[in-house]
Design a protein around this nucleic acid. Structure first.
Lengths: 252, 252
DNA sequence: CGATAGGTTGATGGAACTCAATCATTGTGG
DNA sequence: CCACAATGATTGAGTTCCATCAACCTATCG
């Protein structure tokens, strides 16, 4: 089959909707272009590679692979994970639209984790050496890169606190509150959303057994804090959930 | 009392030994100057502030304070920690000579953790806005900053794995192996060193009760893996320790 | 030298893991 | 289009690792 033809027809199928500049992207306030002026965004636009949407479970990069690019999520949800000595998966994080991932690979110049789509997702590829070149020219971009990486470090430290000190209920509570806030920042309902990841992933990420995640969900449902139906979650009593998450600050 | 005179006399007391340029510093291969040429190091030298050595328990910055600078350890050991909702301390990390800390504050422009000296220590202060200005001029410095921050993210992710999956023995084993490697990178003995931090700090950092830390130490001593005498630790059977730390790679 | 902080050891209980069975949902091929 | 794997989620029973509580030991220091 003619590959060119295939790719063309696929482009037509998708009506090229995934080819959208940063300027037009609704996420630009959350994503890298924050703090860049119009001209600067234009330069950023030039180096960004926008590929066709990813199917569920499709890999973006593989642990051990040569580091080329960092990525931004445009739509969907991405799971980052590594494999430990026993071949067990370790979930490192979940990434929502506007978030940057792949930053952990800069240090070793090799991906130290893998990333896959949890659902149909669109991503932007940012070739890292072009980012460094550009950020040397655009102080705003450089500063924003520092901020993004620092934010990642901060978030990781909060996760460490969660893992080393909190109970199962507190972990789930914090996790849900965190998701709730991130959804609301994306103009989505903070109190009713669909979990893009499986229970196993949640447990893995939070250092809990799947069964514990399940039990906490049902317990919270029985206490009228949540309404859980499969992956659909509604926060009924957000005050109590905040309390459980240890006064986790709600920004909405 | 005349402050100028005091500071002069103090300088004399210390024989100015703490005022040493990056060029002359024995740590420059581990620290920020890595990957910079001589001229570039010269520029870096100009913006670094070198203060008098810190006494044990002396604070470097305080949680909530305005973010001004990141820091590099020149000698001694630094503990970074935050305070959780219950007023409990949460140890975030320990920093040895050549390591950079304070990077978590960039994001919020406020320190989100505090840092104190665990023993008499010397540090270099790096005013962050000068670092950003300089790194926009020196691509090598910018790239190195990215690498340092990425390395921090990687290390944090490894700690998350430890906290969410490993047993008490594995945590202590990994912790000791990690210290051992870091000491050997600093040309110190990998098999015999003094722990700069208290047992409480180790437990806090690793998500374990002090009593558990103590018990694991004695158990490892009974199994002839370690020799522990207060803060002095000797690794007797590094092969077994590696195994316990789950094949943690030894670099020496 | 008593006081205080840091460290060790023992006994006990509980939160969460593991194992196991069942239920629900999804996907696939005949 | 249904049957039936295969995967994911829930629930129960039993077990375990580690936290907690408590007592005691040991250093350091004013």
């Amino acid at each position: 089959m003619d590959i060119r033809k295939q790719s063309l027809s696929l482009n037509r199928d998708q009506t090229d909707s995934y080819i959208i500049s940063c300027k037009e992207c609704s996420l630009n306030a959350l994503c890298l272009p924050t703090a860049l002026d119009e001209q600067e965004v234009g330069k950023l636009d030039e180096i960004i590679r926008r590929a066709r949407p990813l199917q569920r479970n499709q890999r973006i990069y593989e642990i051990g692979g040569d580091f080329e690019s960092i990525y931004a999520v445009r739509s969907g949800a991405i799971k980052a994970f590594s494999i430990d000595e026993n071949g067990e998966e370790q979930v490192i994080g979940f990434h929502l639209p506007g978030e940057i991932f792949g930053l952990d690979a800069i240090y070793t110049n090799r991906y130290v984790s893998s990333a896959k789509a949890l659902e149909t997702s669109a991503i932007c590829e940012l070739p890292f050496n072009q980012i460094t070149t550009l950020s040397a020219q655009l102080p705003n971009l450089q500063n924003h890169m520092y901020r993004v990486m620092s934010g990642e470090i901060q978030a990781d430290q909060q996760l460490q606190l969660l893992l080393s000190k909190k109970t199962a209920e507190e972990r789930i509570g914090t996790f849900l509150m965190n998701l709730s806030i991130r959804y609301s920042q994306r103009k989505l309902s903070p109190n009713s959303f669909r979990l893009p990841m499986a229970r196993t992933d949640i447990g893995n990420y939070l250092g809990l057994a799947v069964e514990t995640v399940s039990r906490v969900f049902t317990r919270m449902q029985n206490n009228n804090i949540l309404k859980v139906d499969g992956k659909e979650v509604s926060i009924i009593d957000q005050h109590s959930l905040c309390e459980i998450a240890h006064n986790f600050q709600r920004h909405t």
